[in-house]
């Protein structure tokens, strides 16, 4: 049976996050030929609606309210529940982002339904959809089915490919007016720490440094390589603990989980807790002085050598490649 699927779009600093398009692609699969309805919440988001249509949404509903300028679970909860009530969707897809992780359990609890979190791929479609998600920090996977009721999932960024953009596609954009009241949380301030540019959890290329980077200064060549490749810099806990970089860069079991196309680990030994955050990356490159380092066991390609020699050389080679391309 085809389904109507509701998808929460997510904007960050005035632009849609990639995961919004990935969620539409997931929704298309689950819909089994049904309708995909994107939802945008914020104080001023209408202008972004067109992009969602081009990436496959059949229609877009916006809820605009001054109280939705910043995310709070109360504000966004009231808005999305109003949309759910109006639309009676048979499935719902959020991104497994900070926002999606915070909001989805509240909505699932309110609706008394199941929720499959952190889905990385979907098998089958419509009623037969089976959701695959990593468990035990990526050391195993499980296939999960929703027994009955609304199919509600969150998808991990960077795992489900968006549909090909169709610039000629059109769809209805409607707005719903919702009274947002009695917020129990007041956001006082947001301190931006994450590195400018590319968001680590959505980056296609991640250059990660460990204790082998030896200093804050030592991260500079990694940042240069990341800039050339349009990627983001990450780190091991070893590097964060040693104060070479901010904890916001930490990848692993107690840090971020990333699944980029290319992960370059420089001066990282490959402890199991680090692997938990990156082992599902498509291609892993290890650069380490120690040929016995555990990181080589998960690497697709390895160079045994000094990262301070190898990384700048790599940067130069990639620059040449970009020029020739």
């Amino acid at each position: 049976m085809s389904k109507k699927v509701l998808v929460l779009g997510e904007a960050r600093e005035g632009a849609l996050r990639n995961v919004s398009y990935e969620a539409i692609a997931a929704a298309k699969t689950i819909s089994g030929g049904g309708e995909v309805v994107s939802v945008l919440l914020g104080d001023s988001v209408k202008d972004l609606a067109g992009e969602l249509v081009k990436f496959g949404a059949d229609r877009v509903i916006t809820v605009e309210h001054p109280h939705l300028k910043q995310y709070t679970s109360d504000g966004y909860g009231q808005a999305i529940l109003a949309v759910i009530e109006q639309e009676s969707p048979e499935a719902i897809v959020f991104g497994h982002t900070a926002l999606g992780k915070d909001l989805s359990p509240k909505i699932a609890s309110k609706l008394q339904i199941g929720l499959v979190s952190d889905v990385t791929s979907i098998e089958g479609e419509g009623d037969d959809a089976v959701y695959i998600r990593p468990i035990y920090s990526g050391k195993a996977f499980e296939k999960v089915k929703v027994k009955n009721g609304i199919q509600f999932i969150t998808i991990r960024p960077n795992n489900i490919a968006p549909l090909v953009k169709d610039d000629s596609k059109t769809g209805d954009v409607t707005s719903l007016s919702v009274d947002i009241t009695s917020l129990r949380t007041i956001i006082k301030e947001v301190v931006r720490k994450s590195s400018e540019g590319v968001d680590l959890s959505e980056a296609k290329v991640v250059i990660a440094g460990g204790r082998g980077v030896k200093s804050e200064e030592g991260f500079k060549p990694l940042q240069e390589l990341a800039n050339v490749l349009g990627g983001a810099v990450g780190a091991s806990r070893g590097a964060c603990d040693a104060d070479y970089c901010d904890y916001s860069l930490q990848i692993g079991q107690t840090g971020k989980v990333v699944t980029p196309d290319l992960y370059i680990a420089a001066g990282i030994s490959g402890a199991i807790q680090h692997l938990a955050g990156m082992s599902n990356s498509k291609i892993i490159v290890a650069i380490n002085k120690d040929p016995e380092a555990n990181i080589f066991k998960v690497a697709d390609y390895g160079i045994v050598g000094d990262l301070f020699e190898v990384i700048p050389m790599l940067t130069e080679e990639f620059k040449k490649l970009k020029v020739n391309a």
């Binding site: 499980e142 999960v144 082992s279 998960v298």
Partner: peptide, 15 residues
């Protein structure tokens, strides 16, 4: 009664 059900658990393909 659980709303979702695990139907299979498996290890990632060995690299």
């Amino acid at each position: 009664e659980a709303k979702i059900e695990t139907i299979e658990i498996y290890l990632p393909p060995k690299k």
